[in-house]
Structures are given as structure tokens and as C-alpha cells.
Amino acid sequence: MKVIFLKDVKGKGKKGEIKNVADGYARNFLFKQGLAIEATPANLKALE
């Protein structure tokens, strides 16, 4: 799953980066902790 990092995550990505991560890791950790959001077209446009 492609995500946009909202904060730096050690070993995974830095704020503003778009990367592929495992679906479960994204849903169960990154999204719940507020560290990333899904890289949807609307979210990508908002990032610009």
C-alpha cells in the first residue's frame, strides 16, 4: 500500500515521502499512530 508519511518513522521513511509499505503495517500502526495517510489521488493533490 502506498502511504504518505506525516512524520519521520525510523527505518521506514521521512515526513513528506511516499512509499510502499505492507498493508497491515499501514493500517495497524502508521494510520492509528497518525504517522501516515493513504496515498490516494486526493491526498497526493493536497500534499502539493
Rank of each mutant, 00 (worst) to 15 (best):
M1Y: 07
M1L: 15
M1V: 13
M1I: 15
K2L: 14
V3R: 00
V3L: 04
I4A: 02
I4Y: 08
L6Q: 03
K7V: 15
K7I: 12
K7T: 12
K7P: 01
K7G: 06
K7F: 14
D8P: 04
D8L: 03
D8N: 10
D8Y: 07
D8K: 05
V9E: 01
V9T: 04
K10I: 13
K10Y: 13
K10Q: 14
G11A: 05
G11E: 05
K12Y: 15
G13D: 02
K15D: 03
K15V: 10
K15Q: 10
G16W: 11
G16F: 08
G16E: 02
E17H: 04
E17I: 03
E17A: 05
I18W: 02
K19F: 06
N20V: 15
V21G: 00
V21N: 00
A22F: 09
A22H: 13
A22D: 15
D23T: 13
D23K: 13
D23G: 11
D23A: 14
G24R: 11
G24F: 14
G24L: 11
G24H: 14
G24M: 13
Y25Q: 06
Y25E: 08
Y25W: 10
Y25A: 06
A26K: 03
R27P: 04
N28S: 08
F29E: 14
L30M: 04
L30W: 03
L30D: 01
L30Y: 04
L30G: 00
F31T: 06
F31Q: 04
F31H: 02
F31D: 03
F31W: 02
K32A: 14
K32H: 09
K32S: 13
K32Q: 11
Q33I: 09
Q33H: 15
Q33L: 15
G34R: 07
G34Q: 09
G34S: 07
G34V: 03
L35D: 03
L35W: 11
L35Q: 03
A36G: 04
A36P: 01
A36K: 00
I37S: 03
I37G: 01
I37N: 02
I37L: 10
I37Y: 05
I37D: 02
E38G: 04
A39T: 02
A39S: 04
T40R: 03
P41I: 10
P41V: 11
P41G: 08
A42L: 09
A42N: 11
N43I: 06
L44R: 07
L44F: 04
L44Y: 03
L44W: 03
A46D: 10
A46R: 11
A46I: 13
A46V: 11
L47D: 04
L47E: 06
L47K: 05
L47H: 10
L47N: 08
L47R: 07
E48A: 11
E48P: 07
